[in-house]
Design a binder for these strands. Structure first.
Lengths: 373, 373
DNA sequence: TTGTACGCGTTATCAG
DNA sequence: CTGATAACGCGTACAA
């Protein structure tokens, strides 16, 4: 249903500083100074100007200000999608912090498309943002800025990129070497970055499963992405230190469906795992569905853990044990890094934030252990 | 963990149209025309200019353009919170549509605070947005714009406001009168608005329950808000037309906890309902938990429905039957309305969008009916 | 303490 | 077809 009706044309022309100057009887320069709380202006004058501002409903014209001062007080924020509550939380943190500093946020969605990513950085640049935050991007850095160095401070958040697949039969030494190698790729760039320590998170999650008595643990959702590799390596590391072998790896796109099928496959194997580490919560939920479809129960027969602590994770049955990423904090920190850059401190910063284990109902004691005891 | 290291100062001064003019050997005016694809410029000249642009990496300075053309090609979008995936979807739709039209989105979060809402509209105005979308706002319209008419096209989306509580013992005539009254409050405003037809959605949802054999149906989450009242009225309307009486109303804040407690209370009554309509999905999930805590099952013993189709709704157990709001479409439409206003058609538009019933697993045949048959 | 004059980077209006 | 020139609204040296 749609209804329309006339409404008065809002065509009042905006009031400028000249109008204020005229009404108050002072010059435009004085008005500017009064508005900037400059100590050079007499209190009585300030009063007078403020009255005129009030009366006319004057608001400084932001473009003109920006043009004159050469700063836009705007930060470009590129994320994969606003519809994703994960990134939504990052935006919330960023927006809050920016507002505190008197900055606003220019938002763009990349929808996982490198072309859109490049277009967005272009947009930001021509909008003369004072800095930009590139979050969850998939494209290659070179495609963003033609001449190497970006002209404004840039920070990457949870930057994703493809890596040649890691051999799964790594040894104790190669795990550390590979982690170092993956991290080094970050360091080469001159662009600041913030990311969550996926390696450590996966390691702690796996250690928790081992401490719960699990000995046969599989990983579902292996892929050639930076994040996936670090999580696999953390998983391997924990296993090695406990003298255990992985109970299986399932490769595939990081979707619910992958998790479902993987669970069905793994459960029908002769030596089925008693616990599954999923690449992320969505895959984990798929695993839980697969487990149920296979006639078994979580966590009685098999334990499941995920990553990210997405909103849904706390609402599935049983609620999912996972590791939560500091989403709002990442957004805030990203803005702070950019702000430091804007303030004229052109340092590259690299932040590795720690996730937090969220213990819920999807992990129980190892089923095998129960039988033998 | 934090690491910092030196990086080359990015202080190249941006290239201006004058640089392009110099290099290409033409005047700035011609460069502008070439870039605007004006037919007034000779192809050879255009080529020449384009080469210079390429070579210098020139990008038009957006403020200066905006200042000269008096349009910012920006739309202000105010939402309660980016962390909420409901609004995130609205943003996605808006952002997409805006990008198609070459506009960008300036985002602000109100966090349900009328003060922040007013500050945001102020920000938008001083940023000279071409139009603004005020979504899910709670404040009073008068507080937004000092001088009555806003100076740019504005559209409200799912505008929320408090209403004097509706008497629950309405009659058939008063239902229609009340719906009309609630809607009239919208019409009085000169500001365009988009909202979902909550009355009709609630009515259809309730009709569906009745068609499933339910006769004793309660409503949980009554409050003095516009949305809540329309949903209650839709619920009442469906019941009346079927010659049924409501099995109860529970008032309270629209949270999961309210739902939980309400379920416990309703189930222990002498004539317990066989179905519950919750104000929204979060309340509905609370109801489901309460039902389970009370030792009964959904949908075997009692059916539950919600509103909004939030992300979580499809993942709870059983998946929730609800009515989905056209979130992305609302965002798109909002941008379109603003764009029409920008194009110089200052009409007030009122759009009532229809939600869609999403039938999932939380509704079954009436338990009472099963027993008697 | 206040006013004047100029620059910020573009676009639009007129002449040529 | 192209080139001067004047806005656009504000900040800021510099002068008063």
């Amino acid at each position: 249903m749609t209804k329309t009706s006339r409404s008065p044309r809002p065509g009042r022309k905006p009031v400028t500083i000249a109008d204020v100057a005229r009404l108050s009887g002072f010059s435009a320069a004085t008005v500017t100074r009064a508005l900037q709380q400059s100590p050079l202006v007499r209190p009585a004058t300030r009063q007078c100007v403020e009255r005129a501002v009030e009366q006319l409903g004057y608001r400084p014209h932001w473009f003109a200000q920006a043009l004159a001062t050469r700063t836009s007080r705007t930060i470009g924020l590129l994320i994969p999608s606003s519809g994703d509550s994960f990134w939504g939380q990052v935006v919330t943190g960023a927006e809050r912090r920016a507002a505190e500093a008197g900055f606003s946020v220019l938002l763009a969605n990349a929808h996982d498309d490198p072309v859109l990513e490049a277009r967005a950085t272009d947009l930001f640049l021509s909008r003369r943002v004072d800095g930009m935050i590139l979050a969850g991007t998939v494209g290659r850095e070179v495609s963003w800025f033609a001449a190497g160095q970006p002209p404004v401070p840039v920070v990457k958040v949870n930057w994703e990129t493809s890596f040649s697949p890691v051999r799964l039969d790594v040894t104790a030494e190669t795990v550390d070497a590979l982690v170092a190698r993956v991290r080094r790729a970050h360091r080469r760039s001159a662009i600041s970055d913030i990311s969550v320590d996926d390696f450590s998170a996966a390691r702690r999650l796996t250690e928790y499963l081992i401490a719960s008595g699990h000995q046969r643990i599989a990983f579902v959702g292996v892929a050639a992405s930076r994040t996936a590799i670090l999580r696999v390596l953390g998983f391997r590391k924990a296993l090695m230190e406990a003298g255990l072998e992985p109970a299986g790896f399932v490769t595939g796109p990081q979707t619910l469906e992958t998790g479902r099928e993987a669970a069905l496959t793994l459960l029908s194997a002769r030596s089925a795992p008693t616990a599954i580490v999923a690449y992320d919560d969505m895959v984990a939920i798929g695993v839980m569905r697969g487990v149920r479809a296979g006639g078994m129960r979580v966590p009685d027969d098999i334990s499941v853990v995920g990553f990210d602590d997405i909103e849904v994770a706390g609402f599935v049955d049983p609620p999912l044990t996972t590791v939560s990423q500091p989403k709002e904090a990442m957004g805030r920190l990203a803005v702070e890094v950019v702000l430091r850059g804007v303030a004229g401190n052109p340092l590259k910063e690299a932040h590795l934030m720690q996730g937090e284990l969220v213990l819920r109902g999807s992990v129980g004691p190892a089923a095998g252990q129960q039988r033998t005891s």
